[in-house]
Design a protein around this nucleic acid. Structure first.
Lengths: 229, 229
DNA sequence: CAGTGGTCTAGACCACCAG
DNA sequence: TGGTGGTCTAGACCACTGC
């Protein structure tokens, strides 16, 4: 007789895998399952809730619980702080602030911030190095209206990424991954050839309705983002 | 007085954001918080468990619960079935099976399968198209010892991805994302220039100890993988 | 050892929504 | 409108682990 919710969870998982519960099919109600397995309904609920969160079941009040046909596999990536990512590889982190200026960004950047056409933003261009070798080239736009304190920070010492993480916590954001050929300037900075295929990450971060920062990361060749399904 | 666990959760989140609970600092025990908020300990537990799962708290028996210093942002991507990904964009899906043969793979592939040096695998080369335009080029190796039924399937009709999803459910896997320059053959198939920067996904899928398949996806230029944090 | 989180139970009320 | 999942409560036992 199953006791813990993890055992119950595993048993339900088995039934799905073994096709005892068919895709698109309703499964018994919580109370029935609880009676069958000899545990409380709360335990069944915990197990089913977990399976639903992991994408194997769909639950609706009154309608009941059904098995999902094509369970979508989800991959979770950790969005690391660059310094920690480098240090976790056992390398020494350093960074160079290549440019820092307040200016009006190009229209495609302004559009992301949903700001009027003449809004100045803080532009930062930073090269992050691992063991003194170029690791990732960062271009960042910061909405100073949202984080005015950043203007006074010495970004030679602490990079903007880290300062923002520590001072503007728990915001939302979106992420876009792709590939881009290195232009001449990037190639020079990253010590690679012009035209080399580089892994690119673009991230917009906001808090509430306000957009805080837009950052584009161009990684050195051969960089790969890894995860487990 | 907070009643539901989501309210309790939000209140705790507020305390973290507002630095009432400082990073690296222990927070009161569940029973204390329950007394303070006037709800049961289970409700507090549910709220704290959620915050821990989302990476804001670290919980240890006896040691207590503490606020994490640099909360890691996590991004979740859905790993789509190629056909559905294309159809969700409103395009018509089709695919071409370019090659299908059973052969001994190169050593770097064999190593991923953890198989002896002379193990033959099923090799599949498939081009997936959206509205008849090349979308992604797939190279796949399948361990037929793990899924012998696949050998008899007509993969002109149903692509291997879909067949595997529907017949070998709920396996684990790992994922690697990067950028790669198009070689001549890939460029021709994807209708792009040789050397173009392409977004590459490599995925290994296993069930239990057995490795089922290794697949490499080369996306057409300008493809981007999107998600929300 | 003792305090913490992890979990189970039984019973209860409620929100939702398909029929 | 009744059945379903969502959740709360109070009390209890247990596993882990820092002291």
């Amino acid at each position: 007789m199953a006791q813990g919710w993890q055992e119950v969870n595993a048993e339900f998982m088995r039934r799905i895998s073994a096709r005892e519960w068919l895709p698109d099919q309703l499964i018994p109600a919580e109370s029935e399952l609880a009676a069958e397995l000899g545990c409380s309904r709360v335990t069944v609920n915990r197990a089913l809730r977990d399976l639903a969160q992991r994408g194997f079941l769909e639950r609706k009040r009154k309608a009941g619980t059904r098995v999902i046909k094509n369970p979508e596999r989800k991959a979770t990536f950790v969005i690391p702080i660059t310094r920690l990512e480098i240090e976790n590889r056992g390398a020494v982190y350093s960074h160079q602030l290549l440019k820092r200026e307040i200016k009006i960004p190009p229209p495609e950047v302004l559009a992301r911030f949903r700001l009027p056409a003449d809004s100045p933003l803080l532009y930062l261009n930073t090269l992050h190095l691992a063991d003194a070798k170029p690791f990732v080239l960062e271009e960042r736009w910061v909405n100073l209206a949202a984080v005015p304190e950043l203007e006074a920070v010495d970004l030679q010492q602490q990079n903007a990424n880290e300062w923002l993480v520590n001072h503007v916590p728990f915001s939302g954001g979106d992420l876009s991954l792709g590939a881009r050929a290195a232009d001449n300037k990037s190639a020079q900075l990253l010590h690679c050839g012009a035209g080399d295929a580089l892994f690119e990450v673009q991230r917009t971060t906001w808090q509430g309705e306000q957009i805080i920062t837009f950052v584009q990361l161009l990684h050195a060749p051969d960089y790969r983002l890894l995860t487990v399904l």
